[in-house]
Write a protein that binds this DNA or RNA. Structure first.
Lengths: 207, 207
DNA sequence: GTTAAGTTTAACCAACTGGTCAAAGATAGA
DNA sequence: TCTATCTTTGACCAGTTGGTTAAACTTAAC
């Protein structure tokens, strides 16, 4: 027989989708199970039927969202190419990820502070290993080739690149208030900044 | 007659202090008025006697904390001295502020996303004006003197410096998990990074 | 069509939450 | 000492919250 449900998706996915939006917008403490149910168009008891508790539902959401962000973040560093190219490509791609999922940085940073354990054994350490074996290794190589300054530390550079890319989006309300611009002007500014960022880093590390 | 209270401070301050700790640790939604009262060693009704509502108490906390962080952040940029000196002093001083108030960045970023209005008319725009008239002006001057590269945009540089300084502290749980170190190793790393940061920026902007 | 398993619902609950209030206690001036 | 004001408290309250449950509904196999 045909599916007579009001909802084309299966409820498990509908719940996860609605929960993602609510949790990301309001955080774990600010989110309400009833609100998630309303957004999914389902009875609240169903959330518990499929995901037992608010905590378990939250973890399902967080894991999915976190993995998504991580993929968009480290994948570029796992490919073997000249460091300057990696940097340019990263900033270009990562800015788009951040614009698409603009609330994710603050959400993840905040929930991670609330409970640092949610991330435990979420990193398959192979991920870092791969970054080490490609990006970090490449840096050392280009240092020997005289392309990159000797004093550059791969891990620090990695953190610097991340900082420059992510922070402005996390601090968007602060920046817009501080320099007195609206949201669209902010994204214009980020768009213009995109090209300059790679230059900023490369200029700093080149020999 | 002598003060027979168990608490040497006046209750208004005791509440604000306890509220600061709880709000910063758990956020507005996660904080409980009873928990704040317990931490202050006072009756819960007193919180409402002095601060009417949870929202008003939160605003009092946020304002104070925010002003404190802002002072430690922009004061260096308001002084007229060579740009490279400003940058070196800023990183050195700001890292100490961040270590002392290590939970503030995420707290402020998060609450600002929850309700961007809490920061409205909190910036006396004179603050930004002063930064413009000193730091930004100085950059333009040093560009003409051939000390700094022509393509450097003052506002972008300002945001970059902030990003490099603040982000690692906001992302501490992420970084420690990702590279598999504990908290003390993280702060050692930040300590070592401190000197390199100024070099990283200066190297990038010098002509 | 009977049955057994999976799915969905409305009604319900105990615990908790921000907030109130009347009364008790402290304080300082007259 | 009396009194008017300010402080402090315990008890209380209405609304909300995550979570439960028994019963109704669907589905598909026989």
């Amino acid at each position: 027989m045909v599916n007579l449900n009001k909802h084309p998706e299966n409820p498990e996915e509908a719940i996860l989708k609605a929960a993602s939006e609510i949790f990301i917008e309001k955080g774990f403490d600010g989110a309400r199970m009833q609100e998630i149910a309303d957004k999914a168009g389902l009875n609240k008891a169903l959330l518990h039927y499929y995901y037992r508790s608010k905590d378990k539902l939250f973890r399902a959401v967080f894991n999915k969202v976190f993995q998504r962000l991580m993929d968009g973040l480290v994948s570029v560093f796992e490919e073997n190419m000249p460091v300057f190219d990696t940097i340019r490509i990263f900033f270009k791609e990562h800015q788009e990820v951040l614009i698409t999922y603009r609330h994710l940085p603050v959400f993840i940073l905040n929930e991670l502070q609330r409970d640092p354990n949610i991330v435990v054994d979420m990193f398959n350490t192979s991920r870092l290993k791969k970054v080490r074996n490609t990006f970090f290794h490449r840096i050392e190589k280009e240092k020997q080739e005289g392309i990159i300054r000797q004093s550059i530390q791969p891990m620090e550079l990695f953190i610097n690149i991340l900082s420059l890319s992510v922070f402005p989006y996390a601090a968007k309300p602060l920046i817009t208030s501080f320099i007195g611009i609206d949201e669209s002007a902010f994204f214009d500014m980020m768009e213009a900044r995109k090209d300059g960022l790679a230059d900023f880093v490369i200029q700093s590390i080149k020999a």
